[in-house]
């Protein structure tokens, strides 16, 4: 299947000669939420979930976004796929501002950027068969021939380590790890260029977590995708990412190559995160 092209597609930017091509550029993005607090909600306040963030993702790169709960990392992911509208700023995908896209153009953008969610049980429709869940996106994006669609879905199921026979089963028949595989197959259906993975392994048991991490690594090579990998677990970030951005209270406090951040963290918050994470070695106990 050829990749869909945008109306504003800029050939000079995506020529493909340069490997560190910018796929996604986030420029001074802001997303604020008004909240009502106090007695009878008399006070209104603003939560700056994403507060002037700039971040690039290159083609074929895995960028980690790490921070504690409530720091705005999920909100940033949602703004990128436009599940949330930002207050200010720009998001450029292949050089084109996606915040001004409408209708058909927006639909094309959605094929190229997909999301994997944290809780696989909550993100699959319990009344749809696995085949229909994965095939829905194909149908919406124009693959109307049912036989062709089924063939592609079966191919996807195999790729994520499930069986073609799982096509007509329902989500409740699967374990947590298998459901996450279904979520991944669904995200891959349209051969996206960028996947936003929001804590995809934190709800899984450890023995299954490693399976999914390895699967994500293999699929990235196969599909030549980029990942924005949102997580709170520093060890997982180190395993999977090329670059990492550390986020705190809506701002990116430090950003750099993974090895650099882990070996020579500069910002006190990055240091605190690294120091607080337990180490798998009883020799380095601190308590």
């Amino acid at each position: 299947m050829p990749f869909p092209r945008f109306c504003g597609y800029n050939k000079s930017i995506t020529g493909g000669e340069d490997l560190s091509e910018k796929l996604l550029e986030i420029r001074k993005l802001k997303k604020y939420y008004p909240v009502q607090t106090g007695f009878l909600s008399r006070h209104s306040d603003i939560i700056k979930a994403v507060d002037c963030i700039s971040l690039d993702i290159n083609e074929g790169e895995t960028v980690g976004l790490v921070g504690e709960s409530g720091c705005g990392k999920t909100t940033l992911g949602k703004v990128i796929i436009r599940l949330e509208e930002p207050a200010e700023g720009e998001v450029l995908f292949k050089g084109m501002n996606i915040l001004s896209l409408k209708g058909g153009e927006m639909k094309k953008y959605r094929r190229e950027v997909q999301m994997i969610f944290q809780d696989p049980s909550a993100s699959l429709d319990p009344r749809m068969t696995v085949g229909n869940s994965i095939g829905e996106a194909l149908l919406i994006h124009g693959m109307e021939d049912e036989r062709k669609r089924m063939k592609r879905v079966e191919e996807l199921l195999n790729e994520v380590g499930l069986e073609a026979g799982d096509y007509s089963r329902y989500p409740h028949e699967f374990s947590g790890g298998q459901k996450q595989r279904i979520g991944i197959a669904r995200a891959l259906a349209l051969r996206p260029k960028l996947i936003i993975a929001d804590e995809p392994v934190s709800a899984l048991d450890i023995s299954v977590q490693a399976q999914i991490l390895n699967l994500l690594t293999e699929l990235k090579e196969e599909y030549k995708m980029s990942y924005l990998f949102i997580a709170h677990n520093m060890a997982v970030i180190r395993y999977l990412c090329d670059r990492v951005a550390v986020m705190k209270a809506g701002k990116i406090v430090e950003e750099g190559e993974v090895e650099e951040i882990f070996e020579k963290p500069k910002h006190p918050y990055t240091k605190a995160l690294l120091e607080a994470a337990p180490v798998l070695n009883p020799h380095v106990r601190r308590l």
């Binding site: 298998q178 450890i206 395993y239 882990f262 798998l280």
Partner: peptide, 23 residues
């Protein structure tokens, strides 16, 4: 052994060897 092999380490990047199958 399988559990220890499937955990990423924060100190050093290592290869993960997952335990196959489901609980």
């Amino acid at each position: 052994i399988g559990l220890l092999n499937s955990l990423p380490d924060i100190v050093k990047k290592k290869k993960l060897i997952p335990i196959a199958g489901q609980i």
